[in-house]
Design a protein around this nucleic acid. Structure first.
Lengths: 220, 220
DNA sequence: TCCATCGGATACGGGACTGTATCGGATACA
DNA sequence: TGTATCCGATACAGTCCCGTATCCGATGGA
């Protein structure tokens, strides 16, 4: 289940210590370079220079920038989802709160990394032109949804609501997140945009769920 | 008010017939080339070749690909908004219909041009890295919202609903459109995505509006 | 009809990046 | 410690594209 990146990867030639280390260093360098220059403007050489290797090393570990990006993305996603889940779990041990507060908490957690979201938007745009990459992006989106759904369930329960179509809610939230995140990036200095984002999230959650009959704290 | 593109344009050196013609041909060529190859992968030479000119002609009319793109975008947007408005106006002379039908109509009109939306996503990603371009994109988004708002008002009235915060609704619709359009492009063969898109639009409009008291046809 | 100006063609020099073939030092294993 | 293998460095050949300086035919005004 794990290695989605292998869909485009060449056959793994056996992992030795040395190999693993350069691989990792290239991946970390890539994270920075992509964030700084953007996906489209990043060259193999950029990454190598940053990591302190030559292109020879690169091509001995990856077959293309796409492959490197996917591997990097996988790592990054695992980290982000991990910490995200952790925060949610921590929050879930607290008092029952209102839906509004819940949304606010969620949004505070989300925009950890504007830089990273920008890179993701760039890569998504790039992936739209490549069927294989498109599939990978789609798969990863499902993966995110699948990871988050249990937490959403839990959070909704604590707020005293229940959802009819979980998948639809997840898809809607992702769409709203993507759309509004883009707006926030385009107008970074406009607090109005962030407010509207919050309102939209709230409205969508309300629309896709309803109050649970026996709820303890059905606040507005 | 018109020429947003002039924010990055060099001083216009006077418009003669000849000049206007090559300009126009370059713009039209650009539309095709961008659609085919994507914004990021399109070079000045590509556009020139397609238009039947040399780079000399290009640089005598535009100072960069960005500038060409903005000019092209402006033309394209005017066309699209024009025909969109026309359709809406035509529809507005028909019977009063339900909200659901209205949304369906709207969505039928929207995805006129998947290719074009893909290009737009690419350019938006590109613009995120450039403050000036970011401003242009933001301004253009406002322009779209401003153009559509009157029609939304009219449509809502005919459906027997009224909106509290028009700007918020417009922003929400744009966000939802962007987010779901992306999902549709990533999974083009998945009818589920389009269904969810429809549902989300419906939910958002419902959430941001309410039935008008004296409405004639307050269908569910 | 003349001629000043315009605008596209041509040609130039150069930079950036790619992917591969080869080499030699490092590494792991016996 | 020896040695077969690995893997990153180096060097190479090649492609693509850029932006400009210059030239000359076209154009349009007097």
């Amino acid at each position: 289940m794990s290695d989605i990146a292998s869909q485009t990867a060449s056959k793994p030639p056996r992992v030795t210590k040395r190999r693993a280390e350069t691989r990792q260093r290239l991946l970390e360098a890539a994270r920075f370079v992509f964030a700084e220059k953007g996906f489209g403007r990043t060259s193999v050489e950029d990454v190598c220079e940053r990591a302190g290797y030559t292109r020879g090393a690169f091509y001995s570990n990856f077959s293309s920038l796409d492959e490197l990006f996917l591997a990097m993305w996988e790592q990054r996603l695992a980290t982000l989802l991990g910490s995200f889940a952790q925060s949610l779990e921590a929050a879930s041990r607290e008092e029952v709160i209102s839906l509004e507060d819940g949304i606010d908490r969620l949004l505070d957690l989300l925009p950890v990394d504007d830089l990273w979201y920008r890179v993701q938007a760039e890569f998504t745009a790039h992936a739209l032109r490549n069927p294989v990459l498109r599939g990978v992006v789609a798969a990863r989106e499902s993966q995110i949804a699948a990871t988050l759904l249990p937490f959403i369930d839990g959070a909704l329960e604590r707020v005293g609501r229940e959802v009819a179509d979980r998948e639809a809610l997840a898809a809607a939230l992702i769409a709203v997140h993507d759309g509004t995140a883009l707006q926030c990036l385009i107008e970074p200095d406009e607090p109005r945009v962030r407010r509207q984002r919050r309102d939209l999230f709230l409205a969508v959650v309300r629309a896709y769920t309803e109050e649970r009959p026996g709820a303890t704290s059905p606040r507005t």
